[in-house]
Design a binder for these strands. Structure first.
Lengths: 190, 190
DNA sequence: TAGATTGTCTAGCAGTGCTAGAATTCAGGA
DNA sequence: TCCTGAATTCTAGCACTGCTAGACAATCTA
């Protein structure tokens, strides 16, 4: 049945088109302005088509978030494992995290800021979140000393998340971004 | 002119009623569900009345945010200055901040999370934000050692903000809230 | 080619923020 | 006490939102 598979292929392509377009739109005009009508217009179909692929608008943002967290995990892992020693590894991981958030603010928002119940309800995403968390923990474990590694991981992740979101909201001095990351790593490792 | 002042008094009272009701609604059903119709219904007036007091719905949330940051400043100052020494002061400030965020999540969201341009555009609020920032800086300055105090303040505030928001989004283990605050203060002061 | 299935669109619902203009209330003067 | 003008409040409506039912068109099967 080549027909059936051709159809399925076309359908899968459109699925990706929706996600790619939603992501581009969000990065350029913000999630608040990504409406079903605008998104449908951008992919050159009518709105109901979107609902043939996703349950609702939120599910589209959730799917973008899942793509994003997969990217983020790869970025963190590469940064950490490419470093010559644990201290550099933690440093590289922190910088990579903040850079990803800064370079893909809409995706970061979809993953960690936008209200969504998918992250904990679905079958795949909790595993992804755990994997991302494990990257943080692997990077910081060498510096845990007598402290609970998991708690220290939460402290590190929260601190980076805070820097990412406040910087994006223009509430931190933009030219001191690197200094903040450096200082955070310093106080944690010393 | 007792008539004029009576009118003005009634108007000021309704102004406060709007703010109080918006805050209560937001805390109980979330900002997303605080609509002009619902808010107008709650204060027993029609929607256009709201626009006689505030420019738009966002301005109402902004006004709640300003009330909130004034409260928060008082809370932080009390926590810091009531402590017997700087270390306890920093500890108390951190806990007070996280407690406020946890006890008034909608107000905290209005201040630090909701998209708003008021915080930096208006005449009053930047001063309030600076005052709040000064509280953090006063608490952490004794521990700055050779580091830039302002950068360290940003690191501290970001770390607490991250813990507050991720905890509210149920992304951190709720029973370890205190341990995270303790550990953060520990790594910063040691 | 006829019929069934699949895919897509048009048109519409209830909700949103916000506003113009009608209706009402009220204060002050004759 | 009644009238007039001003201040206040409401009704009704706009353009937008997410989402969907049902009509229509294209495609595959027999």
């Amino acid at each position: 049945m080549p027909t059936q598979s051709r159809r399925e292929r076309a359908r899968a392509e459109r699925h990706e088109l929706i996600l790619r377009t939603a992501r581009e739109l969000a990065e350029s005009i913000g999630w608040g302005a990504v409406t079903t009508r605008r998104l449908a217009e951008a992919i050159d179909y009518s709105q109901p088509v979107l609902y043939g692929h996703f349950e609702n608008m939120n599910a589209i943002a959730d799917a973008v978030a899942i793509q994003g967290i997969e990217e983020l995990i790869a970025v963190l892992r590469f940064a950490r494992t490419s470093a010559p020693d644990p201290a550099d590894g933690l440093h590289a991981l922190a910088k990579a995290y903040l850079e990803y958030a800064s370079n893909h603010p809409a995706v970061y928002e979809a993953i960690f800021v936008r209200p969504t119940d998918l992250e904990f309800a679905s079958a795949d995403s909790p595993l992804l979140l755990k994997t991302a968390f494990a990257e943080f923990q692997a990077a910081i474990e060498p510096f845990a000393a007598g402290d609970d590694p998991e708690t220290l991981t939460e402290v590190l992740w929260s601190a980076l998340h805070g820097q990412a979101t406040l910087a994006h909201a223009s509430r931190l001095r933009p030219e001191h971004s690197r200094a903040r990351a450096d200082l955070l790593v310093k106080v944690i490792t010393s």
